[in-house]
Design a protein around this nucleic acid. Structure first.
Lengths: 228, 228
DNA sequence: GGGACCATCTAACGCCGTTAGGGTATCCCT
DNA sequence: AGGGATACCCTAACGGCGTTAGATGGTCCC
């Protein structure tokens, strides 16, 4: 371990962009977004925090690197089927991939990183839609809409923060606390919330996600038959 | 100013939950989410940071307070019209309100605070949908879907972070940098992205938002005629 | 007048992102 | 072969952060 230290250049640098990403994802998965610090990532690489600044300008830039790597490589996606099936499969694969990394949605949140993975996904979806007969504007808007929905959904699904319930509660526990809060709201003021608490709460995330994706796609289909 | 200080209880406490919210929103609007610290909020109230912990358990709890206050009071919304018009108006009002506060979407992001404002909005939307003939599950799913979309959209619209472009760039500048990145991507690999760069980028946010909301509502409408 | 308690204070801990500046191994040029 | 340039990592430090412990002093009730 403590051999080639003390300011050496060991032929192949200890820190590369790839290593940064790997280490960052490791810390993220193990400790979560709030604990993702430059010092922790550096430690993961057996290195001092300040050394990271040789490879990266900011923490922001590190997060940008992580962000693109969290947009999975969509090349693995099977693309037989019509535009609707393909889009639906993509949405589900995207969500599924994001949920393999703790707090991934918070890394992505409000970040647009035109890295290779994003470019490929966008290009593929745009291609499907244009081929299907959507106008250019429709194709572009639809693609972004879908991305917005999926990211927004996963962000809520991973339930990053809330002071409800026990302090370091799991997403599921917080979700239950929210449902319970809905259920016990004043019935006279909020009858619908109380009546539908079990649906409105965070339960049955899979169903909710599928429902939203299907609604989006059906909404798109109405643009198609109208001529475009 | 420096009169009734030094550990006094000045009859009406200097810090109340309302004052906390006001001060928090002031700091947020003036300096943005990243600069929203307990110390700054305390300074806004002419008080030491530690004093806030008498009224609030965490910074998380303070953010929860801010979150509910960022869900505007929907009682002001006019509700004549059918379910589709009402829902559309609500979505636009929600977005509009969020954009009156800098970084509001980041406060809301991944946070579910069953405060009075959220409960009212939810209950109203659920009521519209049930009255229109949607099933309970559909009403609940649809409501959450709409909320997810609006929040996700505003989160991207406010473009919180990115190391693209100049460091402290405005959202618009970053948006242009993203569009430019799309436009100058390798044409042979990403022909659709390059061709539609102007649409795919962050330009014309109003159009994009309206498009998405309309698609969602059309998607919902298909559930209605099918019988529910 | 005196105790209880409310609401604020001061002081400090350990963590954070980031910068400045030092030092050594490797490469290139002569 | 020698020497300067460069790449890559180090140590040390700064100021800011969230949070806690404990002191302090007004205000209220008996």
């Amino acid at each position: 371990m403590a051999s080639a230290r003390k300011g050496a250049r060991p032929r192949t640098p200890a820190i590369t962009r790839e290593a940064l990403i790997t280490a960052g994802l490791a810390v993220l998965t193990r400790e979560g977004f709030d604990a993702l610090s430059m010092r922790k990532v550096a430690a993961e690489l057996g290195v001092q925090a300040a050394s990271l600044y040789w490879h990266v300008q900011d923490k922001e830039e590190l997060l940008d690197l992580l962000a693109d790597s969290l947009l999975w490589d969509a090349r693995k996606l099977k693309t037989d089927g019509d535009w609707a099936e393909n889009l639906r499969a993509m949405a589900h694969a995207y969500r599924c991939h994001m949920n393999t990394h703790r707090d991934s949605a918070r890394v992505l949140a409000g970040r647009i990183v035109p890295g290779p993975n994003l470019l490929y996904v966008l290009d593929t979806a745009l291609g499907w839609l244009r081929t299907a007969g959507f106008s250019n504007a429709d194709a572009a808007y639809a693609t972004r809409m879908l991305a917005t929905y999926v990211q927004g959904f996963v962000l809520q699904e991973q339930l990053p923060r809330s002071s409800l319930g026990p302090h370091g509660a799991t997403p599921e526990a917080i979700g239950e606390a929210v449902t319970e809060a809905f259920r016990s709201a004043p019935v006279d003021q909020y009858p619908n919330v109380v009546a539908l608490a079990d649906f409105v709460g965070s339960g049955s995330a899979d169903d909710q996600f599928a429902y939203g994706v299907d609604r989006l796609i059906e909404g798109l289909r109405t643009r198609l038959v109208g001529g475009g």
